[in-house]
């Protein structure tokens, strides 16, 4: 029993409305006649009372999985394949339906259990992410969480604040470089190549590194 792609899309949208935007119920409107809606109701993902949709617990679990796959796909296309912005969303929309659970975990591990999609929205945690916290290997994390004397590779720079990004790049810090953290207090001091740099916590949080490499 696999949901139709259309039903999956709607379930994703509903999960975002209920879980992230914290809406109590969604008005059904004209989509009443949509066969995908009745499909969702049939499988017990939603309840329809008069004109309003309410997401069931089962629907919440499934919706979370779908959103996770969508955002993971986006990360995959941006980080690994360098796909253009305009194409990322439509491709991800199709790709997510092809992902099985094991593949999902493999992708998530490959990407280093990322926390945010390229649009800055949170990627719901999967089992593999929770496990990975115990085994510290090949995980992408901000520089602030690296241990002193630990070596890592810069995976990417991420912040909504372009000024911060510019400051980091002005120091010549770019993805792919090897980095060793020397000190965390009172400021973050690290070594890249033969040079040492000092930055404060707000900037260190924007540098994401892949440890254990």
């Amino acid at each position: 029993m696999k949901l139709s792609e259309r039903a999956q899309e709607i379930l994703e949208m509903l999960w975002v409305q209920f879980e992230e935007k914290k809406q109590k119920a969604v008005n059904l409107g004209i989509s009443k006649v949509d066969p995908a809606i009745s499909e969702l109701e049939r499988y017990g993902y939603i309840n329809i009372t008069s004109d309003r949709i309410i997401l069931t617990d089962k629907g919440k679990i499934e919706g979370k999985k779908l959103v996770r796959r969508h955002r993971l796909s986006e990360r995959l296309f941006v980080d690994i394949f360098d796909i253009k912005k305009t194409s990322v969303h439509p491709i991800s929309c199709q790709f997510e339906h092809l992902i099985y659970e094991e593949v999902e975990e493999a992708i998530c591990t490959l990407l280093g259990h990322p926390k945010f999609c390229p649009h800055g929205q949170k990627i719901p945690e999967g089992n593999c992410c929770i496990k990975s916290k115990e085994i510290v290997s090949k995980v992408i994390k901000p520089l602030t969480e690296l241990n002193v004397k630990e070596k890592a590779k810069i995976a990417y720079l991420h912040t909504q604040d372009t000024k911060k990004l510019q400051k980091i790049m002005a120091l010549g810090i770019l993805p792919g470089m090897s980095i060793v953290l020397l000190q965390k207090f009172p400021s973050y001091v690290f070594e890249i190549g033969n040079s040492q740099y000092a930055i404060d916590e707000s900037l260190a949080k924007c540098i994401f590194v892949r440890s254990g490499s």
Partner: peptide
Amino acid sequence: GERPTFYMEIPP
């Protein structure tokens, strides 16, 4: 105004 940020290269 925005909070200050700190970044600097540390020469040998």
